[in-house]
Nucleic acid binder design. Structure first.
Lengths: 339, 339
DNA sequence: ATTAAGTATGATAACGTTTTCAATAACGTT
DNA sequence: AACGTTATTGAAAACGTTATCATACTTAAT
């Protein structure tokens, strides 16, 4: 009864037909008699035959597999991306093979090569920019469809799905200034050599400048998307003689670090300090007070990335796109709104 | 310069040697002369040769791939499991292929078959119990190593890594009763046909009984791990004439739903109502007030699951284990503690 | 009745590897 | 000088599929 590697040959022998005939049956091709079909299917069932994808892929030169390369699945943002990419491609009958890079450029490079070696049909890639040159080489040499997300790359021949970081930041800061009259708005930032950090900072500055507020370098703390660094950044900011009256956190991790300091030090939001953050993960709305942020677009980004990749895999030609997804502000009490 | 499928044969031809020789070089076998080795490696580099895993796997009868089957990657718990399993097996040179089942039994069954069809070397499975019988068949028929996590299965021939749900619940409720004298403790529960729901409820009841409190069915609301159902459950609970004085949420999603209702209705924690929850994800500690919970063990569970699976794959024999991981309480202000 | 077209099957080759196995060369030992 | 090792290589087979081709049998159309 135990399978442990039944092959077409085994099925063929017992069913008393040839190997190609069995293949035809399980692939539902025409030109198989009803009689044979039934016989074969019954043997397939009896032996618990399952086709072997290695062999199939080798023969078909098609792996039916998509690679997804991200820093960390358990991150709020990347988890969602993986989920929606998986959902999309599962429906298309393709599998997802997952690579966590832990933000390590060496691991990322190995991941890309491995993915290629596995002959994935395409890659969804959230890259750290440091590999840009190597990545260009890989794309040129292997010509595999890649969709980039999260960080913008200055590469041709890839589609990109990005959030409107400049616009999003701008909306948040504009709201703080225009609707609530905050004047010293600090910013806990991601690294500026990643486009998402750089552009979010651009949006922040743009709003300040537009409303005639000074851009004070002391109010900009780079915390590399990390909780603990954000904690320390918050501490520094609030130890200034001339304290900020609002803090903008560029991602959820840093929001958590920031809040940890505020709670430990019993700083009241929004009375002592306003808070806004970029992404609206579900816990953000149940913080006390709920935190103003931008509506989530991660699920949508994943879906669009998957669609673009699928089109490329199917051979659709055309210019490579950079899709920017912008998002509305969700006003909540952390900035003084009364919702 | 473009690769697009360089094979050993191509390398062999240009290097002026035979195919097996190239194979020997890239696999670092002995009995290859230095001269040939150098020549071959230079051609490999020049042509950007990457070995083709399909062919390799077919020949070696080894896929170097692990399947991981879970309801939802972007869930706090499962995201962590996936992360630690990936980390472990990546170091062992194995890939992870990911299946989201969306808690759908049909999808789960297909996922298991697909995984087998891909000849994964083992499976980490967080299953919904409904497939238990089919799962037993699959295991019997294919004899593939499986480690089960999250929910306990009454199956032999699998290792299991579970949290100590009874003990954990007990600790939380005990704390509420013994240290803070709460008397009407409600419970927002997962479904009772999953062991994690059932056992958490057992722990809850055990504590009540032990401290001579009645088990009031009206205070037990099943919200199927979902935010919105937990929201409604909370609403119902707080509309009773005889309101609860504390609520225990069995997972993070339901905590979020519960908190949403509390915030909307300006219910003060812990003055009006105490809250405890099972898992200590990072946002739990920055809620206002921070919520009492049990220390996270998801990362550890993933690691242990991976280790057990690896041992089975390597052929280690021995009794199948059920590893229970228990976890300490983290006391915070949501239940009246003063931390 | 002859032919053409369609239906049903199997033999053979191919996908890209690795693993025998055999052949040859190089080398020291007697 | 004959021999046994050991080192180096290649030819051929195999892994489990699917595609191509050829063959044989039906059926329908003339």
């Amino acid at each position: 009864m135990k399978n442990n590697n039944v092959t077409l040959k085994d099925v063929a022998k017992i069913a008393g037909v040839s190997v190609p005939t069995v293949s035809r049956v399980i692939n539902n091709e025409k030109y198989v008699s009803e009689l044979v079909k039934e016989k074969v299917l019954s043997v397939v069932k009896e032996l618990h035959y399952e086709p072997q994808w290695n062999a199939r892929s080798l023969r078909l030169k098609r792996s039916n597999t998509i690679g997804i390369i991200i820093p960390n699945v358990s991150d709020y943002f990347f988890g969602s991306i993986v989920l929606s990419v998986e959902n999309f491609f599962r429906k298309k009958g393709k599998d997802i093979i997952l690579f966590n890079t832990s933000n390590n450029e060496e691991i990322e490079e190995r991941a890309i090569k491995l993915a290629i070696s596995k002959r994935v049909e395409g890659i969804v890639l959230a890259t750290i920019l440091k590999n840009e040159k190597k990545l260009k080489n890989l794309i040129d040499n292997f010509g595999i469809p890649i969709v980039v997300t999260d960080n913008k790359l200055s590469l041709e021949k890839v589609d990109q799905v990005l959030s409107d970081d400049i616009g999003g930041s701008y909306k948040l800061i504009e709201h703080l200034i225009k609707d609530h009259n905050y004047k010293r708005i600090a910013c806990i930032s991601g690294p500026l050599d990643e486009s998402s950090g750089y552009e979010k900072l651009e949006g922040y500055k743009k709003a300040l400048i537009e409303f005639n507020l000074p851009v004070d370098q002391d109010l900009i703390k780079i915390a590399y998307w990390k909780k603990d660094l954000a904690y320390h950044a918050t501490k520094e900011l609030l130890n200034y003689k001339n304290k900020p009256d609002a803090i903008y956190c560029m991602n959820a991790n840093m929001l958590i670090g920031c809040l940890r300091y505020l709670i430990e030090n019993k700083i009241n939001v929004p009375d002592d300090l306003a808070i806004v953050t970029f992404d609206d993960y579900d816990f953000v709305s149940v913080l006390n007070p709920p935190v103003t942020s931008l509506k989530r677009i991660d699920i949508e980004m994943g879906k669009i990335a998957a669609e673009l990749l699928f089109d490329r895999i199917e051979g659709k030609v055309g210019d490579y796109k950079i899709v920017r997804i912008s998002s509305d502000i969700v006003k909540r009490r952390s900035c003084g709104c009364n919702f």
